[in-house]
């Protein structure tokens, strides 16, 4: 049995220890917001947070994780889809097909956490997710808008599950 803490809840899973976190989330826990696209760590569709840091879950075996580590998926990013990024994304109609978007949002959320007011260069360096639909310019605007929303909301931490 592997013990994990996902979106604030402790869960026990019975899988082969080499199973990547991505497939545990998707298949054992039914958290299908985290996507499979390349399986080799290149596209970012599988991005989740581990202790607040963006991690590509397709290459990470569950055996490498400990129960005390906080795993956050897109489903746990906010309680009511009100993370500043989700608000900004809604306002700017960022997604096209949407398949890459959970990973995109999770990468951006980790960036905002470490750099609340990221520059374009910060975005270039940290949001390296592939989007075949081509939402990049709205993603960039969305991150800047979320930074603005964050500042004006004054609530400090909007990532409920990762306080």
């Amino acid at each position: 049995m592997t013990k994990l803490k996902v979106n604030g809840k402790l869960v026990e899973i019975d899988v082969d220890a080499s199973t990547p976190l991505l497939w545990v989330l998707r298949e054992q826990l039914g958290l299908t917001g985290t996507k499979y696209s390349c399986g080799i760590g290149l596209c970012g569709a599988c991005t989740v947070h581990i202790d607040g840091e963006a991690v590509r879950s397709c290459l990470l075996p569950v055996s490498a994780l400990q129960a005390k580590q906080e795993i956050t998926t897109i489903e746990g990013l906010s309680a009511d889809a009100d993370h500043p990024l989700q608000q900004a994304w809604q306002q700017l109609d960022v997604p096209q097909c949407g398949y890459c978007q959970p990973g995109m949002i999770m990468s951006a959320a980790a960036l905002l956490k470490s750099k609340p007011d990221p520059s374009d260069a910060d975005i270039d360096a940290n949001v390296t997710n592939i989007c075949r639909c081509g939402t990049f310019n709205r993603v960039r605007r969305g991150i800047h808008l979320a930074a603005d929303l964050n500042r004006s909301s004054k609530t400090g931490d909007n990532e409920h599950e990762e306080a």
Binding site: T32, G33, E75, P102, I105
Partner: peptide, 27 residues
């Protein structure tokens, strides 16, 4: 006007074919 299909794409709720789960389903 804003797209009608955005909200679920921001929360992971949007089900794509790859995400489908049916009872008794094998992979």
């Amino acid at each position: 006007v804003k797209r009608l299909d955005t909200a679920d794409k921001l929360t992971g709720k949007q089900v794509f074919g790859a995400d489908l789960q049916l009872p008794g389903m094998l992979n």
